[in-house]
């Protein structure tokens, strides 16, 4: 379980997060939604020690972020940051192999190689495995990044807008992979999504943020109402309900 307590954060003197309290249960897909600048990336960066915590605490199971050793956390939690233009000269397989670094520290064994293959297959990257990253499209590169996170084999996976650059087929298959990971492998996925319909379709929980605060959290059915969308995004699309499914008309 990830427990965030009294978390506040300033960036350049501007309050970006204001006293956040949040707990994310183990298992399942949690989607973080909210307008640009709401503080979603900041929250994810703090959870994954990419930014130092200023006030408040974050616990991931029994590990306190900022206090626990870096490499221990790397086997517990993985982050895919919003913009990543890592080493363009690597091949897809080399990049994915880095996901195993927290385990082997430079000396991969058979099991590490198997995990890498598994990740490549899971994201359908077999035909691209030997290609260099700078020869791929944005979406393919994104998939390679996700595969690296997959190979890292952590209980918690945080992804910041991984659907950027992905077409509908790639988006759906990535979400399906994440859902499967959560359901059958007891992983906890926290994902920032821009398209609310993806959140509605694939997330078990939705957390809505605005101006550095949490406005609502709960199942998609509870959270996605016309009133809430107006409060959070200041726009008023129609929300359709088909049985338990929610769809936002765009």
């Amino acid at each position: 379980m990830i427990v965030v307590t009294d978390l506040s954060h300033d960036r350049d003197g501007v309050a970006t997060l204001k006293n956040i309290n949040l707990s994310i249960e183990r298992g399942g897909v949690t989607a973080l939604i909210g307008p640009n600048g709401a503080g979603k990336s900041t929250l994810l960066s703090l959870m994954s020690r990419l930014l130092p915590i200023q006030r408040g605490t974050i616990m991931v199971d029994d590990l306190q972020i900022g206090r626990c050793p870096n490499d221990v956390l790397a086997r517990k939690l993985a982050i895919l940051p919003q913009s990543n233009d890592t080493a363009p000269l690597l091949t897809v397989r080399e990049l994915v192999s880095f996901g195993r670094y927290p385990y082997h520290k430079g000396r991969p064994d058979q099991r590490d190689r198997e995990k890498v293959e598994e990740a490549i297959v899971a994201l359908g990257l077999q035909p691209l495995a030997e290609r260099r990253l700078d020869s791929l499209s944005g979406g393919q590169r994104q998939r390679a990044q996700v595969a690296m996170t997959f190979a890292q084999d952590t209980d918690y996976v945080l992804l910041d807008e991984p659907l950027n650059n992905l077409d509908i087929a790639a988006s759906r298959s990535l979400m399906a992979v994440l859902q499967e990971l959560a359901r059958n492998h007891d992983r906890t996925i926290v994902i920032v999504l821009h398209d609310i319909n993806y959140a509605a379709a694939y997330a078990d929980r939705i957390v809505a943020m605005k101006d550095g605060q949490i406005v609502a959290s709960g199942s998609p059915d509870e959270v996605l109402t016309e009133t809430l969308l107006w409060t959070v995004f200041e726009t008023n699309p129609k929300v359709h309900r088909i049985g338990a499914k929610v769809m936002v008309q765009v």
Binding site: S48, R49, N70, I79, P81, F98, Y101, K105, R107
Partner: peptide, 21 residues
């Protein structure tokens, strides 16, 4: 340091994610 250098070359966010300070 050669293996750690490989990781550092990925950039500071990716390195942090992989447990390298």
């Amino acid at each position: 340091m050669r293996h750690r250098l490989d990781v550092l070359a990925l950039g500071s966010d990716a390195a942090t994610n992989l447990g390298v300070n």
